[in-house]
Simulated scan of single mutants.
Amino acid sequence: MKMDTEADWSELTRECLINILSRLSLEDRWRGSMLVCKSWFSTFKEPSLHSVFNLGPQFDSPPESTRWWTPQFEAKIDSMLLSVVEWAQSSLTQIRLRHCSDRSLSLVAQRCPNLELLSIRSCPRVTDYSIFKIALSCPKLTELDISYCYEITHESLVLIGKNCPNLKILKRNLMNWLDPSEHQGIVPNEYLNACPQDGEDEAAAIANSMPGLEWLEIRFSKLSAKGLNSICQGCPNLEFMDLSGCANLTSRDIVNASSSLVHLKNIKKPNFYIPRSVFHTERYGHWSLYDERFQTDIFRI
């Protein structure tokens, strides 16, 4: 039998509901609270609840799925982001997600002038078109992650650098093209084969337009010693660099280039395990020829 004193949750004041919803995880808000009743859904659209849109944990916990790389899944992510942008009413400052497209990012550029963090990894249909708009409309950007977005070129990096003077963190990692087996069966082959080749152009763009960078990730970039040297000269405030998988760099290249970085605290160097049997050492006369280029100090042979 119902008790007369039973609370009617639909009659909570808007202030109480906002307080409750602000304490819930993103998943609980979207899958539970917004579906309770009309008043809860109305409160769910409160701008202050949407200043941060972080789908990162939903992508990080499960193993990567082939479903994520389909147009249908991308459309769902776009729809979520479009809704958040509408509800936030220019208060959106952080976006972390994957598999969106130009469609939703173009609206972000229009409606989110206070955006400070944009992380859009693994977005095959994000291009220079929307990133140009972001660069021109979001000058407060301090962190940008465009890893595995192969339709974004060095031209976007130039524009971001010139129009976002507060940029401190750039993540422009590529997939492991040295051993693509870890991505095969999940990432479409045509996308794997589209890995950017313009490592030197990207290095020049970073060096010439992002002098305030403090954190740089360019895993599996195809830049050379010349490109790395230009980055170290153009970005003197770097404190962290991740060069994992940069196969065109030697240990000596990295030491020489980074010696000018007085603030550098940590650097991740290329780390390759290449069994000795792969090479015909007798052809070259001495195994030490490989010590520098392939980092044999960390081999387990």
Rank of each mutant, 00 (worst) to 15 (best):
P113W: 12
N193P: 01
E214G: 02
A205C: 12
G185D: 07
P196S: 03
Y150K: 04
L223T: 03
P113L: 15
Q110K: 13
V158P: 00
L213F: 06
A205M: 04
F132D: 06
N173H: 06
C112M: 07
K171A: 14
H183S: 12
Y129G: 13
R172D: 08
P180E: 15
L170G: 00
C112V: 08
S119C: 13
L107P: 09
L144V: 12
N176F: 13
W215G: 04
N193F: 10
C164Y: 07
F132A: 14
G185C: 03
I186N: 04
A109S: 14
L170A: 01
G212T: 02
E190W: 08
I206G: 00
E116R: 07
D179F: 10
L170I: 05
N173T: 04
M175Q: 11
S137W: 07
N208E: 15
S104V: 07
Y150V: 03
I146Q: 12
K222V: 05
F132H: 13
I218Y: 10
A207I: 03
H154G: 06
D201N: 09
L118C: 10
P124D: 06
R111T: 11
I120F: 05
R125Q: 11
L223M: 15
S209Q: 00
L144W: 13
E214F: 00
F220G: 04
S221W: 02
L107D: 11
F220A: 09
I186L: 10
I120G: 10
L178T: 10
R172M: 11
A205H: 02
P113T: 10
C149L: 05
R121F: 09
A109Q: 06
N173F: 02
P188W: 14
L117P: 00
S181I: 11
Q110C: 13
N176D: 08
E143C: 13
L118T: 08
L107K: 08
L141R: 02
I169L: 14
V158S: 04
T153M: 14
S122A: 14
S137G: 11
P124C: 07
I186H: 03
L118W: 10
R125A: 08
C123M: 02
P211A: 07
C123E: 14
E151T: 09
F132V: 14
L159T: 07
F132W: 15
S130C: 10
A204G: 12
L136I: 12
I186M: 07
L216E: 06
S224G: 02
L170C: 01
C164F: 14
E217D: 14
A135W: 13
L117I: 07
L118H: 06
L178G: 13
S156C: 12
G199H: 00
S147L: 03
C195L: 06
W177R: 08
